[in-house]
Design a protein around this nucleic acid. Sequence first.
DNA 1: ACCGTCTATTGACTGACGTTCAATAGCCCC
DNA 2: GGGGCTATTGAACGTCAGTCAATAGACGGT
Lengths: 235, 235
Amino acid sequence: MASVVAKTSRRQPKTRLRGARGARDAREPRVRLDVDERRAQLVELGLTHFGERAYDDVSIDAIADAAGISKGLLYHYFPTKRAYYAATVKEAASRLVASTDTDDSAPPLERLHAGLDAYLGYVKAHAKAYATLMRSGVGVDPEIARIVDETRATFIDRLTSGFGQGLMPALDSPIARLALRGWVGFAEAASLGWVESIAEGLPAPSQREVRELLASTLMEIVRSTAASLLPSTPT
Amino acid sequence: MASVVAKTSRRQPKTRLRGARGARDAREPRVRLDVDERRAQLVELGLTHFGERAYDDVSIDAIADAAGISKGLLYHYFPTKRAYYAATVKEAASRLVASTDTDDSAPPLERLHAGLDAYLGYVKAHAKAYATLMRSGVGVDPEIARIVDETRATFIDRLTSGFGQGLMPALDSPIARLALRGWVGFAEAASLGWVESIAEGLPAPSQREVRELLASTLMEIVRSTAASLLPSTPT
DNA sequence: ACCGTCTATTGACTGACGTTCAATAGCCCC
DNA sequence: GGGGCTATTGAACGTCAGTCAATAGACGGT
């Protein structure tokens, strides 16, 4: 114990640069929260921070500071930064999925339109975060990739279910699944381009036009794929 | 491996852990290269390293070690790690563009097929690197995003040029540009899904099938977009 | 051969950041 | 009011991106 570390002298008091940003301002009374509350708070902070800056540009210190807690506590809830990021992405994905849920008693085409409209509305409402996540989301970690891929699969299931029951078997072939996955890429790229055009003040199509573009493209893909696989089916 | 680093009297001779990986093996004669050679070597190393691991998992030390040079020298050629990464991505993009160039005297449809086949061939040949770059490429830096976006624009130009001259004006509307950008997303997502299916040993379509999927989808998008913008044009 | 210049190259240094862990402080229950 | 549970702290560590003054090796001039 007595072996004072003293190395040289480095490790100064760090000048305490916590601005008025964090919660613990004056006397810093230790705030004790319930596990779920704290976790929810941290995920919420993750959503805003990772939605504004890229992964590398968000430091654990910044998060802890904004939450008014120590860095160590964050590691009590998430084992690594990547796991924390994964939890954030997971939350964003589940909110997206939830907010684009549609009435499954409605006719398929109506559901498709409603779902796409909800999607585009969500994208527009969270434009910056959507763009940031889409441009830097995956790739940080296989776990993140898994979450994103599962979310995409959820959308594909939702959009194609009830959608021409007779076509379902055909939509399970390798080429059809590739086509559907491609369409998701289409939708994401188009949505991203759309909100970026808006953000930059460029002339951009209306939401209705974009929705029609996505819907008609999907239907065309489904139609032509099914036709090529079931040539006996009447067009 | 032997990562023990003398905590007390720090700054020992560093135990010289350079394995047989780097060039400078035995007596480490300082190798002096021409600026262009050195730069080319480093970019080449970047292609292999960033093609195998994600950005964060590639350290400057690892690159320098593999090149048999000091870290400082790498910073003599590239101001930051991101700039180094950008140079690597730029090289990869320009190789992709170069290897998918087509004979512009051939008829448009033939050019389209040839271009897509070249693209898919490139993707298949560099499957791992393509997947890694696509999943983690953008988002690290706005500069990277610019490079990728410019490369996409190059492809769009190439694919649509000479392709139904009468349609060109219509293909310049906001909705049409969005549709084309969407198609690029379609192509990338489908290509990625394709090589991943192959890599995982899953049943995957043939390259011809994928090429047909991409081509027919593009033509359908062009056709329907042009039709909706120029309703007077005969189909 | 010697010397001077030029520059590719080095390697030790720094600050920042992710991560760990033993110690601490607030809360609840007996 | 005391004891146990656990949320919370804060300092320390190893790693890594980025900096910089010093060096070495080639080349040209004399």
